[in-house]
Nucleic acid binder design. Structure first.
Ligand SMILES: [Mn+2]
Ligand SMILES: [Mn+2]
Ligand SMILES: [Zn+2]
Ligand SMILES: [Zn+2]
Lengths: 139, 139
DNA sequence: TATGATAATGCAACAAAGTTGCAAAATATA
DNA sequence: TATATTTTGCAACTTTGTTGCATTATCATA
């Protein structure tokens, strides 16, 4: 696991530091998306709040993480797939937010539907967030 | 216009006050969605920040305004249609955010597509935000 | 339309979230 | 290992959002 983390950092020309290893491994070992606040808690008292902001920002810029649109003023982050690289995100997949457990998940194998817009609108990217009951909570 | 504003307030059992009239008329006279910050600017120095927060909150609860999901940690508000009422929103329409002018618009006449989710996921609401170039900027 | 009950507002004080500059520490490179 | 470069943590600050409460405005009705 640690090897994988360091590979990802190296591959993105990011120096290998404690906070980057810790934060990236949190995402690799956790199925859902994480907000800044979650990371602060999960990373413990080990890292400064500012470092976490800067690390997340660097990861988004490099195409390691993407942000997920929400109506609740609380940006969530999740791992990108392999097609994302510096400055070029291709995270066009559905996001699911569970009304019960609150987790946000990337649904990589759902088809993003075509949206027919009125005349004059030119679509470049379609973001879809589905709210409902997740796999785990349904049981 | 003022008559319409007061009617909406009365219809929603909200007392008719300066800030409510002002904020509601901003939405009625403005095509796109507005963030809290926009309203603070547009309403001038007339109203306290706290009053604006409370007014927006009241409008959302009453089904006069709805919030729009964004990836940028900046909640935008827009007028609901007539089917929304206290505690029951039905704002299932596409939202469009222009990459050039930054405006966010409700696209009421675009069909919200069905999303096929993997087994186990139960969808209750689908939010669609399209990013691109708007009607005005295309010209 | 005057009066009292009720609700909304503005203010102050606070909490939480996010930003910036900079010296110290860690990492990369040769 | 030595040096250049990058990252970190800290402090100070800004912006955003929340809460309690006294004052003021609105509403209902007599
Ligand atoms: Mn995702
Ligand atoms: Mn809308
Ligand atoms: Zn769940
Ligand atoms: Zn535009």
């Amino acid at each position: 696991m640690n090897i994988r983390v360091e590979d990802i950092l190296r591959h993105n020309r990011l120096s290998i530091t404690g906070s980057r290893k810790k934060i990236l491994s949190l995402f690799l070992s956790h199925a859902g998306a994480l907000a800044h606040g979650d990371i602060e808690k999960k990373a413990g008292e080990k890292f400064d709040r500012v470092t976490i902001y800067r690390t997340l920002q660097a990861f988004v810029e490099k195409g390691i993480l993407h942000t997920i649109p929400t109506s609740d003023n609380n940006v969530r982050y999740a791992l990108c797939n392999d097609e994302c690289y510096e400055g070029h995100h291709h995270d066009d997949h559905v996001h699911f937010m569970c009304r019960l457990c609150g987790t946000t998940t990337c649904i990589n194998d759902a088809y993003i539907p075509e949206v027919k817009l009125p005349r004059g609108y030119n679509a470049l990217q379609v973001e879809v967030v589905v709210h409902g009951i997740c796999k785990n909570c349904k049981k």
